[in-house]
Amino acid sequence: MEALKYIGAIISLFGSIFLFLGALGLIRMPDVYNRIQAGTKASTLGTILTLLGIGLIMPSWGGKLFILIMFVIITNPVSSHVLSRAAHHIGVNMYKNTVTDLLEKDENNTNSKPEKQ
């Protein structure tokens, strides 16, 4: 019983380190899309691991923590996806070493209409 609590604390520590690395990536990455990549992935697994560790320390809280974990898994990719689509739509500048941008090319091909409101 006591060992389970220590395992939970260690798992929480790993989760918080992942959260910290995600925020560090938010600062180091050069453009919006790479920031979204680092921010979303690291913060998702970080939160899941932290909540899992708390669940191992307090097993009777399992139900609510499970709902929180499912909520984070479902909503976090959706919000990052919506945000990156909006960023591409309003034409945020990409990193100077970006290799290809096929979406831009396809939009220019199909949007032969003059107005783009």
Binding site: F18, L21, G22, L24, G25, R28, M29, P30, D31, Y33, N34, Q37, A38, K41, A42, T44, L45, G46, M94, Y95, N97, T98, V99, T100, D101, L102, L103, E104, D106
Partner: peptide, 26 residues
């Protein structure tokens, strides 16, 4: 895959030379 992707992101962020080569593919 989730665990693999997080280790990947962590290594990229901690690497001082920031090894990225981004682009949008279809």
């Amino acid at each position: 895959e989730l665990i693999k992707s997080n280790i990947d992101v962590a290594l990229r962020v901690l690497n001082p030379s920031l090894p990225i080569n981004p682009g949008i593919v279809k």
